[in-house]
Design a protein around this nucleic acid. Sequence first.
DNA 1: CGTACTTTTGAATCGCATCAAATCTGGTGG
DNA 2: CCACCAGATTTGATGCGATTCAAAAGTACG
Lengths: 205, 205
Amino acid sequence: MNSASSPIHPELAELLPADLHNFCVTSAYGKGERLFETGNKPAYMFFIASGEVVLERLGRHGESVILQRTRHGFVGEASLQSARYHCDGKVTAPAEITQVPIREIRVAIATEPAFATRWIGMLNLELKRLRGQCERLSLHKVQDRLLHLLETEGEEERYPLGSGLKSLAGELGVTHEALYRCVSDMEKRNLLRRDKGTLSLVASE
Amino acid sequence: MNSASSPIHPELAELLPADLHNFCVTSAYGKGERLFETGNKPAYMFFIASGEVVLERLGRHGESVILQRTRHGFVGEASLQSARYHCDGKVTAPAEITQVPIREIRVAIATEPAFATRWIGMLNLELKRLRGQCERLSLHKVQDRLLHLLETEGEEERYPLGSGLKSLAGELGVTHEALYRCVSDMEKRNLLRRDKGTLSLVASE
DNA sequence: CGTACTTTTGAATCGCATCAAATCTGGTGG
DNA sequence: CCACCAGATTTGATGCGATTCAAAAGTACG
């Protein structure tokens, strides 16, 4: 389903050194495609320009756990030096994705200190995001988790739903039923608005 | 309470370039001491050689959330390029800690590619650990979280308790009462052993 | 010895998971 | 264009498990 290559995303162009641009291949991906699977040997790093990708791990009983939902930026950064993927990368909404060969990234890090510093900056941001997610998951009520998400990840207290509330439920670590009920409760109490594909907090006072 | 400096931990010595060793200061810290506080400007990176340190963030209602418990390795790696700390670093068990000036680390990353690569490797490990923690926190039952912890973080299915079950409860995102009950249940059912300061799984078949 | 903290147990309550089923939706092929 | 299907959405009922509040017993430390 991949289409022809095209110019890379400006943010990616700014992060990568110029001599890496030639190794980039940008393609369109359809919903349901896999970027990689658990156990495979990582060969490419994937930059999401648009659409949505989730990192998913399967528990021993087949339940899926959403480790990360990305609509923008790299997924699987941690696989730079790994021998195998430790989760699956699945496209959940039609996406524009640029693949960059990991080997070349490693070389660039070892030869271009400025790039290494930028890469570290990216990892630091991801660490903070993950710490935030842990903090969120240690809240006990669905509403608290949802508010925390809107406050910390939302822009202007608005948060885009990639592929519906169901996938958001996975990210919040609750069942979709619980999230549906929570959202409709909060709408009734006029705390939350839901417009097509976006959740937003209603300004209180 | 800090005592005189001493030779740095071999693992740290291996990570850092030789010319950074002179900037390291190793001291003993007592329980309750703070390495840093939310809002402060990061000046040092802290390497825990022994003891225990937690990263803690206070919710708006004063509840504390444990973001990370470290008994070995760096804490607050993500603050390398941050203007401010976004959580508190608290010593929870008497510790040997080496402080390294952040400025020098930044310089070293920008001038020694091999060190940058090692640093990135460390960040990648931390990312994986955090993803594991998110996975754990999205389990719904205390017992499942505890088993997951023992299986993924334990060595030989043994896991050292730094400062008691209470702090572990925080890390698992449950109340200490729930954890106490869970542990004693599992002991009764002969699934778990608790020796002074260590939890270990009982081999099943 | 007293104080502060952890550990432990008990009882009541509440929120979420779970199971079930109905409705709605977008997309497919006839 | 319509029938149909797979998936998402929504609502309902029930039970379990964790939170919460309370209190007692154990423990470390000055």
